[in-house]
Design a protein around this nucleic acid. Structure first.
Lengths: 192, 192
DNA sequence: TAAAGTTTTGGACGATCGCCCAAGTCGAAT
DNA sequence: ATTCGACTTGGGCGATCGTCCAAAACTTTA
């Protein structure tokens, strides 16, 4: 039978995934090494290559797991809000809760860059982002957005990630203050 | 006397800086090694540590040089445009000319992440970004922007970088198409 | 031309890397 | 109690890392 310890508490595999997620923001995507992640997970170095074919495989699996969870959470939260303006406010409020060096936001940016050099990650992460944009677009339409919803969704997603990126450099930047122009952006359709 | 070869053609030091700039988008910030950059520059491996105290020092100097030049160019171009909407159009047009894996845009993102773990880079890059935001803010005021110019500048800068980031993942994303909502964002002041 | 200074060379050093594996541990099935 | 398969251990392998340095090559000064 398969691993039994998987049913009680976090399995070794999950411990490795969690350790990888925690380490990427600390030492960077390529700074995560076999021994480092094993030490963080509290296991022997060799165990990494028993559960994963390579360190890269571990990082890809760990990263995509986090983004998939984030995606689901955002979809649920957005759907629960009937008004676009209020949803934007909530979104920026969430961003405010992150410190500039927050693991989650830095992980996402690291993944974007890593995807540039890893075709498999690029494809799978691109698929996730595409799904997110599609979800936001239909969400905008349902709430009466009058412009091109695909364009607005793409710009909104890019803006959110850009704010995360700038906060990594300047934690003093307050996302909540950006609500004005951001709501203005979604308040009317595309002119030309 | 000081290096004379610096006066005729690119000095060895400049060749190293150029090689580093070209390599960062290819192999990542931490993927740039002594031997790699020396080979790309066409010099012996040891020369790197003659001109720079460490590879990190080389990368910081190379990166800040590029961003400083970019900053100056953007300032000049923006000042030459009297209308906000037209300037946004030009900005997005410039972004369109980059492929998703364009060296310049990827370098900037790599620097943001590296700055997270390098206090000196963080401070100097943060100062540059701050100067850029201040420049854009006063530029907006001169052109009659009615909202909080600092907020708009911060959001505009973050959005631009976010678009770059998303284009790294999805080169099919067309920046020019985002002009509508982006102009809407800058077309009115902050409501509340 | 000789001496002094500057720049370049190519390899040495110890540390760490990813990946691999023979041996050991442990629970489940017989 | 014994066998078996899943899992873990800790170290070995060759490669590459950042850094350093003595010697060679080149430039400028005297």
């Amino acid at each position: 039978m398969a691993n039994v310890s998987a049913e009680r508490g976090r399995s070794t595999r999950q411990r490795l995934l969690d350790a990888a997620v925690a380490l990427v923001p600390e030492v960077g995507w390529s700074g995560v090494s076999t021994r480092l992640v094993a030490e963080r997970a509290g296991v022997a170095p060799g165990v990494v290559h028993y559960h994963f074919a390579s360190v890269t495989d571990l990082l890809v699996a760990a990263g995509l797991g986090v983004t998939e969870a984030l995606l689901g959470r955002l979809a649920t939260e957005l759907r629960a809000r009937p008004d676009i303006g209020e949803a934007v406010e909530w979104l920026l409020g969430e961003l405010s809760r992150y410190s500039g060096t927050d693991p989650a936001s830095l992980l996402l940016v690291e993944m974007f860059l890593a995807a540039t050099r890893l075709p498999e990650l690029r494809e799978r992460l691109g698929e996730q982002v595409g799904r997110f944009r599609a979800m936001v677009a239909s969400w905008l339409v349902e709430r009466g957005y009058q412009g091109d919803p695909a364009v607005a969704a793409a710009l909104l997603a890019a803006s959110i990630d850009g704010i995360m990126l700038h906060r990594a450099l300047d934690p003093g930047l307050d996302p909540a203050a950006l609500g004005g122009p951001l709501r203005a952006m979604l308040g009317k359709g595309a002119p030309s």
